[in-house]
């Protein structure tokens, strides 16, 4: 008789212990800074409107026609807590994203998300560096989105004409690039720019184009408008995404509605807007900056593994 070993975990026991140690260090770090751990539900009546993120859904037998959404991030509930006066908070949560899989993507993964009341995104970048040092990594080099483009592909992403951008995309293997500036910048950034920046240390890229703001604030930087957002990269892999949180309910509603229009254009499922979040913003979200960190990717960096399945205790395929 052959032995069935398919019940074994995907990650080694060593990695599972490394994960425990990483989580403990994160909690220590948050405790010393008096950031409160919170725990919010994974299931919601509202989904994410972002046209580039798809929620998983489920239903209950008692309300067969009501779709429930599994959270793609704990952001909305945490912002409602901030509006309720929680002060700085963090959460380590399981989140779910449909249609994402690959060496750095998994349908279910673990997200560390924290919010700092009274911080701007520069101060939050410093705190990210402090966390990196706390878990034994180097602190980051910093560069704007525009500088990253200039250094690698020698164009200014904010002013480059769309035609030239499309030509560059075709040169790098995306034949059908036409006029979607946002998608073209994403393509050049994630396949060329970030792979070609020479840095031995972690890297923070900040001041993204306004079209990539999502839930971040905007600011005028010389002649252009940028979003006050940053991302942390290690070995060319995105680890974290942080920004100054948008506190303006009317502006947030406008962005949600633009998202829904974009979803309709792309023939994606419509999702109900989280009106409780809008109500919370309306009542008043304190000025704050927040950030989400992929725990499995951080583990990949710490353990030197190159596939997320090697740091996932059990992968979906194995459960």
């Amino acid at each position: 008789m052959t032995t069935d070993s398919s019940w074994q975990p995907d990650a080694s026991l060593q990695i599972i212990k490394q994960r425990a140690s990483l989580l403990r260090k994160i909690r220590d770090f948050m405790d010393t800074r008096e950031i409160i751990e919170v725990d919010t539900p994974q299931l919601s009546h509202y989904g994410i409107s972002d046209p580039y993120i798809q929620s998983l859904t489920t239903t209950r037998t008692v309300e067969k026609d009501t779709l429930l959404y599994l959270q793609t991030s704990p952001e909305f509930c945490m912002k409602r807590l901030l509006a309720a006066g929680s002060g700085s908070i963090y959460q380590i949560a399981h989140v779910f994203r449909d249609e994402e899989s690959g060496p750095c993507h998994s349908t279910e993964f673990t997200m560390l998300e924290w919010y700092r009341v009274g911080f701007d995104y520069y101060r939050l970048m410093d705190e990210v560096d402090a966390l990196l040092a706390h878990i034994g990594l180097q602190t980051s080099a910093k560069m704007t989105y525009a500088e990253a483009f200039m250094q690698t592909v020698h164009i200014d992403p904010h002013s480059v004409v769309t035609k030239a951008l499309a030509a560059l995309c075709r040169q790098w293997g995306w034949d059908t690039a036409v006029d979607d500036r946002h998608a073209m910048l994403d393509f050049i950034f994630s396949t060329v720019v970030i792979k070609n920046i020479n840095t031995a240390t972690p890297l923070i890229i900040y001041d993204y184009p306004a079209c990539m703001a999502a839930l971040a604030t905007l600011k005028q930087a010389e002649s252009i408008i940028v979003s006050e957002r940053f991302e942390l990269f290690i070995n060319g892999m995105e680890i974290a995404n942080g920004f100054n949180e948008l506190t303006d309910a009317a502006e947030q509603r406008k962005r949600f509605e633009a998202d829904l229009m974009a979803r309709r254009d792309k023939q994606l499922r419509e999702v109900p807007i989280d009106r409780k979040l809008l109500a919370a913003l309306h009542s008043g979200l304190p000025e704050c900056a927040g950030i989400a960190v992929g725990i499995e990717r951080l583990l990949m960096v710490l353990s030197g593994k190159e596939d997320i399945s090697e740091v996932s205790t059990y992968t979906l395929a194995n459960n």
């Binding site: 972002d50 580039y52 249609e99 994402e100 899989s101 690959g102 060496p103 750095c104 993507h105 293997g173 995306w174 979607d180 946002h182 998608a183 910048l185 994403d186 393509f187 950034f189 994630s190 396949t191 993204y208 990539m212 999502a214 957002r229 991302e231 995105e238 995404n241």
Partner: peptide, 15 residues
């Protein structure tokens, strides 16, 4: 080989 590439906030690609 099929690689999934996705920036934090934006369009995903298959390379």
């Amino acid at each position: 080989e099929n690689n999934f590439v996705k920036p934090g906030k934006g369009q995903a690609f298959n390379r």
